Amino acid sequence: MRFNTRKWVKPEDLNANGTLFGGRLLSWIDEEAVLYSIIQLENKRVVTKYMSEINFLSTAEAGDIVEIGIEVVRFGTSSLTLKCEARNKMTQESIVTVDQLIMVNLNEAGKATPHGKTQIEYVTDRLAREGGEASKKS
């Protein structure tokens, strides 16, 4: 799993117990899943359809750094299924795992639409492809 995002736990992120509020962490995870999907599917109209069971394993406190990792599980016709882990960088403990986040690709009318993707594409691959296409046009 690739951990691309880090969040700094601040006082406004805490619950009444003085630890990271679960809702805040789920918001961070949802945002990361949407951003990852937008980049993979090359469409800014992506929404969360489903989030599986959420298993909280540990927590974080103010000043801790939380890392969020995303991994592709499956490419559907109009969806992308991801799994996620958030871990405490300071303690190296997993805070939460989410086995399935289903993200749906939408068209301008807000309807699910095929995305045509079948595998992970990294930015370097996309740049190489676009560079090759640009040189063919020259």
Rank of each mutant, 00 (worst) to 15 (best):
A16F: 12
A16S: 15
A16G: 10
A16Q: 11
A16R: 06
A16M: 13
N17M: 13
N17C: 02
N17F: 15
G18T: 12
G18I: 14
G18Q: 08
T19D: 13
T19C: 06
T19K: 14
T19I: 15
T19M: 09
L20E: 05
L20W: 07
L20S: 12
L20N: 09
L20K: 14
F21V: 06
G22H: 08
G22Q: 05
G22Y: 04
G22P: 14
G22V: 11
G23K: 11
G23H: 09
G23M: 07
R24G: 04
R24N: 11
R24H: 10
R24E: 14
R24T: 15
L25K: 06
L25C: 07
L25G: 06
L25D: 07
L25P: 10
L26W: 08
L26D: 11
L26E: 13
L26A: 11
L26Y: 09
L26N: 10
S27V: 01
S27C: 06
W28R: 05
W28L: 02
W28D: 13
W28K: 04
I29A: 08
I29F: 02
I29M: 14
I29L: 13
D30R: 05
D30G: 14
D30V: 05
D30W: 03
D30Q: 08
E31W: 05
E31A: 11
E31Y: 02
E31M: 11
E31P: 05
E31G: 08
E32A: 14
E32M: 07
E32V: 11
A33L: 07
A33P: 03
A33R: 02
A33W: 00
A33N: 03
V34N: 06
V34Y: 09
V34D: 03
L35F: 06
L35R: 10
L35N: 13
L35P: 03
L35G: 06
Y36L: 09
Y36E: 03
Y36P: 00
S37P: 01
S37H: 02
S37G: 04
I38V: 15
I38P: 01
I38S: 00
I38L: 04
I38C: 07
I39Q: 09
I39T: 09
I39A: 11
I39S: 09
I39M: 09
Q40V: 01
Q40W: 00
L41S: 02
E42S: 04
E42T: 00
E42Y: 01
E42F: 01
N43W: 02
N43A: 04
N43G: 06
N43F: 02
K44L: 05
K44A: 03
R45H: 10
R45D: 00
R45M: 03
R45L: 04
R45K: 13
R45I: 00
V46T: 06
V46N: 00
V47I: 15
V47T: 07
V47S: 10
T48R: 03
T48S: 07
K49S: 07
K49G: 14
K49F: 03
Y50S: 07
Y50P: 00
Y50V: 08
Y50C: 01
M51A: 11
M51E: 00
M51H: 03
S52W: 05
S52E: 14
S52A: 13
S52Y: 11
S52G: 15
S52M: 09
